[in-house]
Every structure is written in structure tokens, then in C-alpha cells.
């Protein structure tokens, strides 16, 4: 028996919205500690990892660990039948569920849906806990804007960290550009820019993955970029009181 009730169903919709362009079919894992999801995009350049802790739910029960394979596209079709202010409950009775039930509750209506599940034998990558040599915390809409703007100039975006801060740069056929974001310790947390740089990094990434993933900035006003030289970068959106949504992106490396 599994049941998880989102107080704020809109949050669940934003999470699905953020990952739907990156991953197609995913295994949703549920156990006593909460719900998690890990899936790669088709080209294996990006890995999406979601972690939602049971304490963040209005109601949460999971007697036995469950794996529910689902199509993000079909999940979205079901979620489109819910309102952004609905409470959303996920539920299944069986130990080997073939469907996942959804209840959408608002003050004037209650809806029930069943999503057919599928069995997906996806390899799960083991992402080790890593000490990153550069960790930058900045406003998520600022990061989104920089990626979108520089992405118009070149499909690869460079990220360079130093004690002074973080610099994004592009060198394309039409020309080049760079954006240096200054550290600031304003008292408004959502505008703060913090850099912990033990070792500076200089990395290059395909910016289209950032642009696909930055829909997640609706989840949090801040984004955390964790980097080490020649390692995948982690973009993390903290989901208040619930957990986090992470995008791991493999770097482009100079041959």
C-alpha cells in the first residue's frame, strides 16, 4: 500500500514540467523515506535525479518499496486534468502495481484518474557523494537568463570560477561574450550570490540542456551549481520542505 499526498499539487506539476523535455520514461521509486527518481536523457549526457522526503507530504505511507515505471508524457496528460491549487494524492494498493491512482482535490471538486504503468529495465547509475571544488549559489532566474542569452550566441557555454565569482562565456562563429556574476551578500536570500571555490574550474557544456532544465527555476528562487574540473556539473533546485531536483550534466572536454 502506497499513498503520498501533495499539499501543493502545483509543485508536483512544476517538477514534471521541468523534466519532461529531458527524460521520457522513468522509474518512480517509493519507499519508507520518500519518493525518488533517476533517469538519463536518451543521449546519456544528462541525468535527472529527484528526491522527495516523506516528511514533506501532507500524508505519506509506503509499507513496501515500490518501483513504478511511467511515461512522463502520459503522466503530464493526467496532471493536465488537475488545477495548480489542487491537492494531489498518488496511491496504489498492490505490491506489483500495474496502475497508479491520482486524486485531485480542490474546494469544489474531486477527480480520480488511473495511469497505466510499464515495466522499465533502466540501468541506475550510482552517483557517489562528491566533494565539489567549486560551489556557486545564485538566483535561478539570473542563471536562466544568462543561459538563454549566451545560448543564442553559441551552443556551448563555458563556466569559469574563481575567488571573485563565476564567469559564463561563449565563443561562437558570430563572435564571443562573457558574463561575470559578482558575489553579493545581500540580506535578501533570493538575490544572494555565493561562491565557495577551493579549486577554480573551467568547464564547457552544451547549453541546450541548461535551457531545457531551467523550467525548474519555478521551483526555487535559488540554484546551486556544483563543479569539479572534468566532472559532471550538478544543477540543484532545492524544493522547500520536500527535497531537491538535480540535473547532472556531463562536460564537453577539449581533446
Amino acid at each position: 500500500m502506497f499513498e503520498a499526498k501533495f499539499e501543493d499539487g502545483g509543485l508536483f506539476k512544476k517538477i514534471v514540467e521541468a523534466i519532461k523535455e529531458l527524460v521520457k520514461n522513468v522509474n518512480l521509486e517509493a519507499n519508507g523515506t520518500g519518493i525518488s527518481l533517476q533517469a538519463m536523457d536518451t543521449s546519456h549526457v544528462a541525468l535527472v535525479a529527484l528526491q522527495l522526503n516523506e516528511k514533506g507530504f501532507k500524508k505519506y505511507r509506503c509499507e513496501k518499496s515500490l518501483t513504478m515505471g511511467l511515461s512522463i508524457e502520459n503522466l503530464q496528460k493526467i496532471l493536465k486534468c488537475s488545477g495548480n491549487d489542487d491537492q494531489i494524492t498518488l496511491r496504489t494498493q498492490d505490491e506489483e502495481p500495474t496502475t497508479l491512482s491520482f486524486t485531485f482535490e480542490s474546494k469544489n471538486r474531486i477527480s480520480e484518474f488511473q495511469l497505466n504503468l510499464m515495466s522499465l529495465d533502466q540501468e541506475q547509475l550510482g552517483v557517489p557523494d562528491t566533494e565539489y571544488s567549486s560551489v556557486v549559489r545564485m538566483p535561478s532566474n539570473e542563471f536562466t537568463k544568462i543561459c538563454r542569452e549566451l545560448g543564442n550566441i553559441n551552443e556551448a557555454i563555458g563556466i569559469e570560477t574563481s575567488k571573485e565569482g563565476i564567469k559564463f562565456y561563449v565563443k561562437g562563429d558570430i563572435g564571443e561574450g562573457q558574463v561575470s556574476v559578482k558575489i553579493n551578500d545581500t540580506e535578501k536570500p533570493e538575490e544572494r550570490v555565493e561562491c565557495e571555490v577551493d579549486e577554480p574550474v573551467n568547464l564547457s557544456f552544451a547549453v541546450r540542456y541548461f535551457n531545457l532544465f531551467n523550467k525548474a527555476s519555478a521551483l526555487s528562487s535559488q540554484v546551486i551549481l556544483s563543479m569539479s574540473q572534468d566532472q559532471p556539473l550538478v544543477i540543484e533546485y532545492i524544493i522547500e520542505e520536500m527535497g531537491s531536483l538535480k540535473l547532472y550534466l556531463a562536460p564537453k572536454i577539449n581533446d
Binding site: S43, H44, L47, E123, G126, P128, Y248, K252, N254, D255
Partner: peptide
């Protein structure tokens, strides 16, 4: 020029 790496190179299948 730059070559795009993939995740499998960094993280192991569990």
C-alpha cells in the same frame, strides 16, 4: 575541438 562526454563514463551502473 571539444568532445561531449556521457554520464556512464563518470558514474557506474549500480
Amino acid at each position: 575541438d571539444y568532445s561531449q562526454y556521457v554520464m556512464d563514463r563518470f558514474y557506474l551502473d549500480e
